[in-house]
């Protein structure tokens, strides 16, 4: 018996121009395995705007439209409306944007699409900075991280602001389905993508997408670091269905140091600072667990 646990069909060709070990490539691969070929993507400026390949080549087997950086939400509403006019109902419209194009630049269009209750799926692949343009900090960069615009150096100017909580922002819009996914748990990922496809209304998926050049780590560690993010509760896997939270994959509860130590972007942190991060992760994970117990 074959131990293959995710669909074998591929919706992308090899030859994409993503970096070796790119997490965003895995996000797209698992997402399309879950959604199937009846999918249309709209992609703003982000890593995936350059990753499909040099013109006239393209690595995806599904149609894809490039839109302006801030316009993913508007673009997917327009595509849904056009399909509705044509009477096409079996196609999933997907907005696929990076963290900068979601939590910073694309936030108003995203909020508008959620408010209009557009029947579409929005996927944010979160590599925690503007990686495509050279690792500048974004609203999704975590506290303590080095980036090109938060250089450490002798004055230790690492990022001093916490990561924007996009899941809470999206939940506040009252959307029917929101979930977090990780490239280290493809089965969970594919299951959530399939689920999101069948829900009517606006759906949101937050995918953690490790970036070897931006996180300053060995490309072979991409999946390992994504697994550690779940096991240290830095990035818990859960879904919010009609306002009820369910943790879908319990982490091992390892110390956050295990996650930080493979990434050189956190290499400058002192033990005191790591302890502070651990406390912050512990308290937010506890709040999530308590909420699950209350609602479950």
């Amino acid at each position: 018996m074959s131990p293959v646990t995710i669909p074998e069909v591929e919706h992308a060709y090899p030859g994409s121009t993503g970096c070796p070990g790119c997490g965003a490539n895995l996000v797209m691969r698992y997402l399309l395995k879950g959604l199937g070929e009846r999918t249309i993507l709209t992609i703003p400026a982000c890593c995936w705007a350059v990753m499909p390949g040099y013109w006239p080549s393209h690595c995806l087997k599904v149609p894809m439209v490039y839109c302006a950086f801030e316009a993913t939400g508007a673009s997917l509403s327009g595509m849904r409306a056009a399909l509705d006019m044509k009477g096409v109902e079996d196609v999933t419209v997907v907005g696929f944007a990076g963290d900068g194009g979601t939590v910073d630049i694309g936030l108003q269009a995203l909020s508008g699409a959620a408010e209009r209750e557009t029947d579409a799926l929005y996927v944010m692949y979160d590599n925690e900075a503007y990686m495509n343009t050279g690792i500048q900090r974004s609203g999704a960069t975590p506290w303590g991280a080095w980036t090109a615009t938060t250089p450490v150096g002798p004055s230790r100017d690492y990022k001093r602001e916490p990561k924007k909580d996009i899941m809470s922002i999206m939940e506040a819009h009252g959307i029917p389905y929101a979930a977090t996914v990780s490239v280290a748990h493809p089965e969970d990922f594919v299951k959530k993508a399939k689920k999101a496809k069948d829900v009517r209304g606006f759906k949101f998926i937050h995918a953690l997408s490790p970036c070897p050049p931006g996180w300053k780590m060995n490309p072979m560690k991409t999946v390992e670091v994504a697994r550690l993010a779940v096991d240290t509760n830095v990035f818990p896997l859960y879904e919010i269905e009609n306002g009820r939270v369910r943790i879908t994959k319990k982490g091992k509860g390892l110390p956050i140091k295990d996650y930080l130590s493979i990434q050189r972007r956190f290499g400058h942190l002192t033990e005191e600072e790591v302890k502070r991060m651990q406390e912050s992760v512990d308290s937010s994970f506890k709040a999530l667990e308590q909420r699950e117990a209350r609602e479950g």
């Binding site: 060709y13 090899p14 030859g15 121009t17 499909p52 390949g53 006239p56 080549s57 393209h58 690595c59």
Partner: peptide, 10 residues
């Protein structure tokens, strides 16, 4: 784009 990315020998 009308060509598969298999032309890119990455």
């Amino acid at each position: 784009s009308d060509t598969p990315s298999t032309m890119n020998m990455t």
